[in-house]
Amino acid sequence: MKQEKEHLTSEESLEIITRMIKTAQGNVKAGAFYFLLWGWISVIASLAHFYLDMYTDYPAPYMVWLIGIPGWIVTMLYSYKKASAARVKTYSDNLIMWTWIGFGFSILVVIFAGQHINFQITPLIMLFAGLCTFITGLIIRFKPLIIGGSSFWIFTPIAFYLPMVYSPLIMAVAIVFGYLIPAYILKKHNL
């Protein structure tokens, strides 16, 4: 497109429009980082939570979730760095960002409402995590993530049904299916 061409045929016009629109799709692979980071944080924290609750007398096993704090710091630094390096802002990146910020607010509500919901915090967080993963998968049109997000609709009722002590264990399994497997596929996938 070195020289400016003023006389285009309708086919040429259409070709330009479709090519440019395709070209503008964001780099969805970058999202794999967040799913891997939070996937591993959640799996480790869930398993530690389950172990402490089931096999030790430690009175506050949920404290292992404090490892989420460095996770938040890494997430904020990484997304800030990404955003300032990005030369284009896409609508899909924006939608995904707000979906997960919404997730953050939702889980805060769940955590602080703990005593009013019989401390069924883990299954509710799973439900929100699944929904947000499902929406993210739809936005980037990536099937493994859509399926991964949907799997939470199976794991969450199981977590509600079983005694509460098993919730973190179910959560760890759900995260492997819902976050980690799709994220590794996404990382490898050439979109």
């Binding site: 497109m1 400016e4 003023e6 285009l8 609508y91």
Partner: peptide
């Protein structure tokens, strides 16, 4: 026009 159409097509999607 080729380039202006390309710019606009790019910008409608982002």
């Amino acid at each position: 026009s080729q380039l202006r159409l390309a710019v606009m097509s790019l910008l409608v999607s982002v």
